[in-house]
């Protein structure tokens, strides 16, 4: 599992997701700064259209990958005992996966109604 994203692959994944997320942050900021004041109708419309929902899920996937590479680096640096290390990495992976599943389910239920 420690080799799930090894060497250069992890480095490239971190950079690629960073660039994508940078674009998402800038787009989100523009949307908030330049658009109408934020309200439920506007928020709901943004997230539940097919395009909005797919983009939101994609952003969360990028966040999870980026977060995984970063968290793994921190664990590899500061946590040396093998058992504790695997337990921590497993816990992080679990939380990230659960978060992703939750976002997909939420957007799927709202998109369906």
């Amino acid at each position: 599992m420690v080799r799930l994203f090894s060497g250069q692959r992890a480095w490239v994944a971190q950079r690629f997701t960073a660039v994508m997320l940078l674009a998402a942050v800038l787009a989100g900021l523009m949307w908030l700064l330049l658009g109408e004041p934020l309200d439920y109708t506007r928020w709901y419309a943004l997230l539940t259209t097919p395009v909005g929902a797919v983009l939101t899920v994609l952003i969360f996937v990028m966040l999870a990958v980026h977060g995984w590479v970063g968290a793994r680096d921190i664990v590899l640096d500061y946590v040396q005992p093998r058992g504790l290390r695997l337990a921590l990495l497993g816990a992080i992976l679990l939380v990230l996966a659960a978060t992703l599943i939750r976002v997909v389910l939420v957007l799927a239920t709202h998109g369906a109604t």
């Binding site: 090894s6 250069q8 992890a10």
Partner: peptide, 11 residues
């Protein structure tokens, strides 16, 4: 060098 430890520990 293409290894999580050998090279890519560098931040």
């Amino acid at each position: 060098l293409d290894d999580v430890y050998r090279l890519y520990r560098c931040r």
